[in-house]
């Protein structure tokens, strides 16, 4: 399916060819927002412990998962991310007392919205990972990468183009 990766995709299902091009099967790219105190530290710990996990995640550090504006998630998808992972402290353990509860509320709403937009729920994930859980970073990243890979490329940018074209025709 990747032989014709230059051609313009015709459908808008999840089976669009890769935007990455080339003969290699597309590797999914996942954007992650990790809170500084728990999940980012856990990822540091995974490193110090030399745990090995999939190279598909790009971590963006925020002070608290509660800083993550749902628009960040939407923007990541819009720019071509195949998955978005959000990591915060366990409920009750937030460095800022209760920021992660706000995250939870917001992201529940967002998850519903993403579904309506045709983004499979496996592509967006909220995880509580404490600073001591380096192994959980590994498990979550590996699991999510495998699941997103199985879903195939999401390719929102190309889908937007398709939708734009349809709008033109509709007019």
């Amino acid at each position: 399916m990747n032989k014709n990766s230059e051609s313009v995709p015709s459908g808008k299902g999840e089976s669009l060819p890769s935007r990455h091009g080339g003969p290699m099967p597309a590797e999914p790219k996942i954007v992650a927002f990790f809170c500084n105190w728990c999940t980012y530290t856990a990822a540091d710990l995974a490193g110090v412990s030399r745990l090995k996990y999939a190279p598909n995640v790009r971590v963006i550090r925020v002070m608290c998962s509660g800083r993550v504006d749902p628009q960040f998630v939407l923007d990541a998808f819009a720019r071509g991310a195949d998955g978005v992972l959000l990591g915060g402290c366990h409920p009750g353990d937030c460095h800022y007392a209760e920021g992660n509860y706000k995250t939870l509320r917001r992201m529940r709403m967002l998850a519903r919205m993403l579904k309506d937009m045709g983004i499979h729920d496996g592509r967006f994930r909220l995880e509580w990972i404490s600073g001591a859980e380096g192994d959980k970073v590994k498990a979550v990243v590996n699991d999510m990468t495998a699941k997103v890979r199985a879903l195939g490329p999401l390719n929102m940018p190309d889908r937007f183009k398709e939708w734009d074209k349809e709008m033109v025709h509709a007019r």
Binding site: K29, V62, C64, G66, R67, P70, F72
Partner: peptide, 30 residues
């Protein structure tokens, strides 16, 4: 923590070092 920044409907709260511009550009960058 930035919880209020993410919540402000008019985007009128900013956070030093973790402002919207900074994070959006980071998303764009990756």
């Amino acid at each position: 923590c930035g919880v209020c920044v993410a919540a402000c409907p008019s985007g009128s709260i900013r956070q030093n070092l973790f402002d919207d511009d900074e994070i959006f550009s980071e998303i764009e960058g990756v």
